[in-house]
């Protein structure tokens, strides 16, 4: 007989996947948001921003080559909103309380949510990456670099998902749950996603340099376009560990005390 936690996780994952496939609006939102920003920045502002970047030196003339890695990270961040809402809806509707009174592994309830969210975020991020290729993003990376970039994105997705699960668990209503991850979703904008941190005014620049998304963006950009990476890869992985462990601990603590109706 298979381990109970594994069996329960698979059963509940099937349920969560069904939700995602049948009601894909939140996942679709995680695709549309970044794609619209991409269209805006490339189609409307791209020419000016691109020439500005080229003038400041060292950056490719085509703005899409600069922004695409940032947008891909934005897509990962946007997935956390769908996660938080899904978890909140689930826990406030009473079905999870039912699971708690059953001989069901409690870890499995969270694990199924996390796996489902990671899978849907992978799908939405892949869509956003495909759109940026359609718009002219031409990464020149080796297979190893592609894999490294995908690995970092996966790690970041996992970390942000645990954080978003915790936010969904502590939110009283789905509305609150959709607001809670706003900080995560907008953080890449105040990073090096759209312009280099070095081009920003003092204060904003320091914030951009030291926030978690900038090293991840710089690493993915370096892997896909050949820009210098430096210490960013190590810092990015460090942030993932911190955010993931923090999110995990928060989620488990929040789940162990049931929501008071």
């Amino acid at each position: 007989m298979r381990n109970r936690t594994v069996t329960d996780t698979l059963t509940l994952l099937r349920r969560n996947l069904r939700h995602t496939v049948r009601y894909p609006s939140m996942t679709a939102g995680a695709i549309f948001g970044p794609v619209i920003v991409l269209l805006l920045f490339v189609g409307v502002l791209g020419k000016t921003l691109g020439s500005g970047l080229a003038a400041s030196g060292g950056h490719p003339a085509h703005y899409i080559a600069y922004i695409a890695p940032g947008i891909i990270i934005t897509a990962v961040a946007a997935g956390s909103m769908a996660t938080a809402v899904a978890v909140c809806v689930d826990t406030t509707e009473g079905i999870v309380d039912r699971f708690r009174t059953m001989p069901v592994s409690r870890v499995a309830i969270l694990a199924a949510h996390v796996i489902n969210s990671v899978l849907s975020t992978i799908a939405s991020t892949a869509c956003v990456a495909a759109v940026s290729v359609l718009l002219g993003f031409r990464p020149h990376a080796t297979v190893a670099q592609w894999l490294a970039a995908a690995g970092l994105l996966l790690f970041l997705t996992l970390a942000l998902t645990w954080l978003a699960v915790a936010m969904g668990l502590v939110s009283a209503t789905p509305e609150a749950a959709s607001n809670a991850p706003m900080l995560i979703v907008f953080l890449p904008f105040v990073g090096s996603a759209f312009a280099p941190a070095s081009s920003m005014p003092a204060g904003v620049r320091q914030f951009a340099e030291y926030q978690p998304f900038t090293p991840a963006i710089e690493t993915v950009r370096g892997l896909l376009t050949g820009a210098p990476i430096g210490h960013n890869a190590v810092i990015a992985l460090g942030w993932c560990v911190v955010l993931g462990a923090g999110g995990y601990a928060w989620a488990v603590a929040a789940f162990s005390r049931p929501a008071a109706h």
């Binding site: 329960d8 059963t11 099937r14 349920r15 069904r18 509707e93 009473g94 079905i95 039912r98 059953m102």
Partner: peptide
Amino acid sequence: VTGQFSAVDNLLSARENLILMADLY
């Protein structure tokens, strides 16, 4: 347990809800 707040999965059909329970048991 059947509470006053219904604990059914609103995004699944009745049959799917029951099969979910059967799988969890």
